[in-house]
């Protein structure tokens, strides 16, 4: 079965991203497909490459990165939500003339069309909200 997953809560502010991560692992373990994970609203902070939690806490952004590398996941961060909140890739940093960028390379900034397309092409969309 084809799943897509939506995360709207920020890691460390809500449990949403951590729950979505666990759910995604089970989806893949059981042999299903994840078409896309879409990070929206405060969920965009999961895409930060600069999160530095204490060593005895889970590093949620890097756990997403690890899962994405292992399973070739499409991790999409909503561009409008992200740019507002200061989560930028190199291209957007240039576009908005900002001095740095912080989107982890395993995530992609893209539009809400990616969420709608995921809804059209997936059998199930599961939202982890905050």
């Amino acid at each position: 079965m084809i799943f897509s997953i939506v995360v709207t809560g920020a890691p460390y502010s809500s449990q949403a991203s951590a729950s979505a991560l666990q759910f995604s692992r089970s989806v893949l373990k059981l042999g299903h497909t994840i078409h896309r994970v879409f990070f929206y609203a405060d969920g965009v902070h999961s895409g930060s490459a600069l999160a530095a939690p204490p060593q005895d806490e889970a590093n949620i952004p890097s756990e997403w990165t690890a899962l994405a590398c292992e399973h070739d996941l499409d991790l999409v961060v909503c561009i409008a939500a992200a740019v507002r909140r200061g989560v930028l890739d190199e291209n957007e940093a240039r576009r908005y003339e900002k001095s740095g960028h912080n989107l982890s390379p395993d995530f992609t900034l893209s539009g809400l069309g990616q969420l709608v397309e995921a809804g059209i092409l997936s059998d199930r969309v599961v939202t982890f909200g905050a």
Binding site: Y40, D42, A80, A81, G111, L112, V116, G119, I120
Partner: peptide, 19 residues
Amino acid sequence: SSAARDALDVALTISVFEQ
């Protein structure tokens, strides 16, 4: 909160996709 605006933006996008 941003919820109302987030929902509206998704609604407009779904409409652009003609679903």
